[in-house]
């Protein structure tokens, strides 16, 4: 067993590189959709055997995954998009059957909202016997007040559909208060070690 999803959260100021690590977990909890996406991917030519795989999206609707919709599993969300890292204010404990965040914080500058930046990626690198890449997103608080983040997750989408699936979810041990004008950066590191 040599695969894991590590998550780190940083707080900083807009336009400044300096930031502070406020949360880190080496083994971020995977949930059911990730498992199903892998089955769909690994058995693409035999999906009829599963007739086909049905994955629950974040609206609690089952979506059939056929050979033609397993093409790419992506999380390259644009600014304001629900695709990629997401954050929320819920505190319900993680279960493997979670299909959405408990209470997702939405994109915007209104009260209780955060502005979602575009998702960026750090290309795979090898360090010793570990290979990894990173998925990064910034959430900027322009709401005028403090927004408290208590859960984080990762939404995937299967090209070419527009449905979103939650594949990782974590409830933070300590809430993160994102003050007005501050930037929360969430980084997922996907890594394998030989």
């Amino acid at each position: 067993m040599n695969l894991n999803f590590e998550v780190r959260c940083y707080l900083g100021d807009q336009g400044k590189k300096r930031r502070r690590l406020v949360y880190k977990k080496r083994y971020d909890p995977p949930v059911k959709a990730l498992f199903q996406a892998l089955i769909a991917c690994w058995t693409a030519n035999n999906l009829s055997a599963y007739n086909p795989v049905t994955i629950k999206d974040i609206t609690n609707t089952g979506r059939s995954i056929t050979f033609y919709t397993t093409t790419r599993w992506k999380c390259n969300g644009a600014a304001g998009d629900n695709l990629g890292p997401v954050v929320g204010s819920g505190t319900t404990a993680v279960t493997i059957d979670d299909y959405k965040l408990d209470t997702q914080i939405t994109h915007g500058t209104g009260s209780g909202q955060l502005s979602f930046g575009a998702v960026s990626f750090n290309a795979p690198q090898t360090s010793g016997q570990t290979r990894s890449f990173e998925v990064v997103r910034q959430f900027t608080n322009g709401s005028g007040g403090t927004v408290t983040v208590r859960e984080i997750g990762l939404h995937m989408n299967n090209e070419p559909s527009s449905y979103f699936y939650l594949c990782l979810r974590d409830v933070l041990a300590s809430a993160i208060d994102v003050e007005d004008t501050k930037v929360l950066t969430v980084t997922y590191k996907i890594q394998a070690t030989a």
Partner: peptide
């Protein structure tokens, strides 16, 4: 394995 998923995720 990592490289394929990187390509998938960034599309």
């Amino acid at each position: 394995w990592i490289d394929i998923w990187y390509s998938h995720f960034r599309n």
